[in-house]
Design a protein around this nucleic acid. Structure first.
Lengths: 353, 353
DNA sequence: TTTTAGCACTCGCTTATTGTGAGTGCCAAG
DNA sequence: CTTGGCACTCACAATAAGCGAGTGCTAAAA
């Protein structure tokens, strides 16, 4: 029997060997045996001794043998212990830091483009799939609205919020308005609401609409109805979603090179739903978070790990970004990359002071 | 030796057998032999006779044997002859027509959403990959422009063209303007250019800029410089591109179930370049166009066929839509589907009179 | 008590061997 | 011109043999 160290349940030697085993497996992707460990673990032990330890580790559920006479492979529990207490996160090379900085800085400051390039960058640098959720901002400031007449009682509404984010909707109205009327309506709304939070605006609109239904003049009435219609119409970019890049990278990993598996995975990426739920969970944590294999709770991701970190605008966490790849990814590299990217993205998104 | 019918190079029997063979292969995906054809071709011939004909067809390059003792499969030349002269295009079921109509009608009239849903619909109905190029319109009418000040000498420009298509750019200027100045600049441009073709506008801007550099007043100068900047900055949706849907469907086809092949194909989809060149070629043809296997000229598509049809707005052909799938697709179904979709999309995009 | 050498045993892979069957080409008779 | 017959080819599946990496157990060495 193994002699436990009280807290961890594993004595030092066992931990050292587990670490060596996981690292080896991550590097080569093949079950690792006692001989290999005896050679490469740094400990001066014979294969036989190592076999004893491995036997214990297996019994405790940290490693498993794919079949009777292969080496051992880390289990989810093994990976978990590895990343939680054994992993020595490798600080990034200066060169890599600069690379990430460039990618996030060079591009135009349009927020959506920034997210895309963060996603591409993550995918390119890790050779896995990068993902960035679109920011959900609690606070959205009304900036400016503009109405343009189209044919058939339709009106194009252009709403600018925050720093230059443009949304546009087509409204179907029951009568037509000429440009001048629309201009007046726009002016009225802009003078009243500019700078206010958009949720507050909506609340005000609704109460206003109920309260003073008769006592209003025509212009105000039209303005408020129309603004309310803008909020009622879902913009096409609404529905919290994410940007993904490098899905095809996953095809290069041997453990995922089964078409059926890939199909299901890509299907899940397209569905967005499950992935989004998972990412939404990470928004509460305040640092890098890691889901290993089945920990995610979604069957399609059983052989994948997800490394995420939230990013923020101002003091408010607004989204999550990360990397999806095979369980056997190089955590010690991926973790700092995701961490740094989240920090730099936050910095890039924050209004310069 | 075979007795040729003068024009085609193939006598009737040979054509009939080729047709039966191709149809059979498209249905089952397996090389078809003389016995099978003898049973199912409708002709009352023994396998031996059929072997003679097949031997001739092989010599002429219409079919080939994957190896000495398998059946025959159509070559590209065989498919070509099949679709050109043998194929009986099956008219669509009423039900299918209605399905396509619904998909294209029900959605909101936002043009981009329409293209997306056309693409998804093609993919869903054919179980292959649907693709729709974004329309390139020769004639783009300036509708309205609006400038909003941002921080740091940056200005958000919102340009509306045609019927409610909104583009927005962020301009970096060398000095800052307040809202009132920007408003004036916008007004100036709108009164001068509203309704004009955007290429004409640009030409005018440039010549104006050169000609009257000194004689202009400040406002005009600023206005023209700024408008020119709008055109010089590429909007993020610019760069002719396409919408694709159902890429993952291709994973379900046996002949493409090789990860390496798929990876290259998906890579090509992501690159966009090659696919776009191919689709651009189709914009000149005025009906359904078909590329079989290597005919496309792009190696990645060697085992795929592409069926396309152009669609138009007004009298002008503005884009191409189609389907990408394995060479062995059900052409007699896909062709009318692509054809109809292009027609209905054109109808949906045309301004209602 | 811990470590290690030795040994028998397992079991997944690779390679070779052998059928099997679908399909072909050719020939000679109908 | 068509067809039955026949020898032949060749991918594919099934079976067997050998290899090798790895294991568990035991008994001796440290």
């Amino acid at each position: 029997m193994i002699r436990n160290t009280a807290e961890t349940g594993l004595n030092e030697r066992a931990q050292h060997l587990l670490k060596a085993l996981v690292e080896h497996y991550i590097r080569d992707g093949e079950p690792v045996g006692s001989r290999t460990l005896s050679r490469d673990s740094g400990l001066d032990l014979s294969p036989a001794s190592i076999r004893n330890v491995m036997s214990d580790l297996e019994e405790l559920g940290f490693i498993a043998a794919p079949h009777t006479s292969a080496g051992r492979v880390p289990t989810v529990k093994g990976y978990r212990f590895f990343v939680d207490t054994l992993l020595a996160v490798k600080p990034l090379e200066q060169q890599e830091v600069r690379l990430i900085q460039q990618q996030l800085a060079s591009n135009d400051p349009n927020p959506h483009a920034l997210l895309s390039s963060a996603s591409s960058m993550l995918s390119a640098i890790t050779h896995m799939t990068g993902v960035v959720t679109l920011p959900r901002r609690e606070h959205i400031a009304w900036r400016h609205i503009e109405f343009l007449p189209l044919s058939d009682n339709r009106v194009l509404a252009i709403l600018v919020v925050n720093e230059g984010e443009v949304q546009n909707r087509i409204l179907h109205l029951d009568r037509s308005y000429d440009s001048i009327a629309l201009q007046q309506i726009g002016n009225y709304l802009n003078t009243h609401f500019a700078g206010k939070d958009i949720h507050r605006v909506r609340a005000e609109l609704l109460s206003e609409l109920r309260r003073t239904r008769e006592s209003m003049n025509n212009l105000m009435m039209a303005a408020i109805t129309m603004a309310e219609k803008v909020f009622a119409t879902r913009g096409q970019e609404s529905g919290r979603s994410y940007v993904m890049a490098g899905e095809t990278n996953l095809m290069e990993w041997a453990e995922l090179s089964d078409v059926e598996k890939l199909r299901r995975l890509f299907e899940a990426f397209n569905q967005q739903r499950d992935i989004l739920h998972l990412l939404d969970k990470c928004i509460v944590a305040d640092g890098v978070q890691i889901f290993i294999g089945e920990e995610s709770g979604y069957r399609v991701l059983d052989e994948c790990s997800v490394v995420t970190a939230p990013y923020s605008v101002g003091d408010e966490v607004v989204g999550v970004l990360g990397v999806i790849g095979p369980t056997r990814m190089a955590y010690e590299r991926v973790i700092p990359i995701v961490d740094l990217t989240a920090k730099l993205l936050s910095a890039a998104l924050n209004p310069r002071k």
